Simulated assay, not measured.
Amino acid sequence: MHKPVSNLPHKASPVLVKQANLFADLPAELIEDFQQEFQLNEWHKGDYFNSALLTERFFVVLEGQVEIKQTNPETGREATLDMLYAGDCFDLIVLLDGQPHDVTVSPLTNVRLLSVKLDTMRQWLWNYPAFNQQFMPYLAQKMREKEELASSLVLHNVTTRLSRIILKHINKIKFFITGREDEQQHIVKGLSDETLARMSGTVRQIVNKQLQEWKQDGTIDKKRNQLIVNDLEALEQEAKYKSKLPDTTPKR
């Protein structure tokens, strides 16, 4: 049984607000003003989130990983619309048009977030040019990601789509095993075969088959919900990017 998400009953500090990439470079006095309106939220893996809250509050991820997905009630098939990491915000669609968004918000790990009233967030965008200048590039980045997702589902096979998903995850998380340079490995955590299937628009069996092929040829090592990428160059070749994958990790 899912538990409802819990809210910590105190406001966020300026230090926490500055941790969010969207606010990090704002003047200190502006952050001081903003932090008065923020609430600190904490969710746990498996918590239930009522999507109606998206019409009331705007959320910024500080720590953890959140999946946004939709489900076909007739077939039960699910598709991942977005995967959120530290520095990401949601829901941008509701922020812009004020309409309900029929999505499932699923914490994949324990998550810490900032939240603010949706109307307050809109007022900040209207009244503070410095904040608007921070927000617009992030909005453009998310729009590009949606464009790439749509085109990838039509133009590329599962192998290419899956390799792109893994590379983007590595690019955002930047979690490495430290050691000698030739032993350094890239770790992908929290993405089960089912989750990867939702993200790549296919089914778990096909994802598992591709992962096993990569495991056999030494590209990856697979342990439960953890992938260790041994040959990053092989995945980059499978991804067929025309240019280098942009660095989307939050700047501190």
Rank of each mutant, 00 (worst) to 15 (best):
M1R: 14
H2C: 08
S6A: 12
N7W: 06
N7Q: 13
L8D: 04
P9A: 00
V15P: 09
K18Q: 12
Q19S: 04
A20R: 00
N21M: 03
P27S: 03
A28G: 09
E29P: 09
L30Q: 15
L30D: 15
E32L: 10
Q35S: 15
Q36I: 12
Q39D: 15
L40D: 02
N41E: 13
W43D: 02
H44C: 09
K45I: 13
K45E: 13
Y48E: 05
F49H: 06
A52V: 05
L53R: 11
L54T: 05
T55G: 07
E56F: 04
E56T: 14
R57P: 04
F58Y: 12
F59Y: 13
L62G: 14
L62M: 10
Q65Y: 05
Q65R: 15
I68T: 12
T75S: 13
G76F: 00
A79G: 07
T80P: 01
T80D: 01
D82N: 10
M83D: 09
Y85D: 07
A86Q: 03
G87S: 15
D91P: 13
L96A: 02
G98Q: 00
Q99Y: 00
H101V: 00
H101L: 00
V105A: 06
S106L: 13
L108R: 08
T109P: 08
T109C: 05
L113M: 15
K117S: 14
L118W: 06
T120W: 05
T120M: 08
R122F: 08
W124Q: 15
P129Q: 05
A130G: 14
F131M: 15
F131D: 11
N132F: 09
F135Y: 14
P137K: 14
P137V: 07
A140N: 15
A140F: 09
Q141T: 04
M143W: 08
R144T: 09
E147I: 01
E148H: 08
E148D: 07
S151T: 13
L155K: 15
N157D: 15
N157A: 11
N157L: 05
V158Y: 05
T160D: 03
R161M: 13
L162T: 10
H169Y: 11
H169W: 08
I170L: 14
N171D: 12
K174C: 03
R180H: 15
E183D: 15
I187K: 11
K189V: 01
G190V: 01
G190D: 01
G190Y: 03
L191A: 01
S192R: 02
D193I: 04
D193A: 13
T195C: 10
L196Y: 02
L196W: 01
A197E: 00
A197R: 01
M199T: 01
S200E: 01
V203N: 10
V203Y: 06
R204I: 04
R204A: 09
I206P: 06
I206C: 08
K209C: 07
K209I: 06
K209G: 11
L211P: 12
W214M: 05
K215F: 06
G218S: 06
I220G: 04
I228V: 14
N230V: 04
E236S: 05
Q237P: 02
E238Y: 08
E238S: 05
K242I: 00
S243V: 14
L245V: 03
P246M: 00
P246C: 01
T249R: 12
T249Q: 11
P250F: 01
K251G: 07
K251T: 10
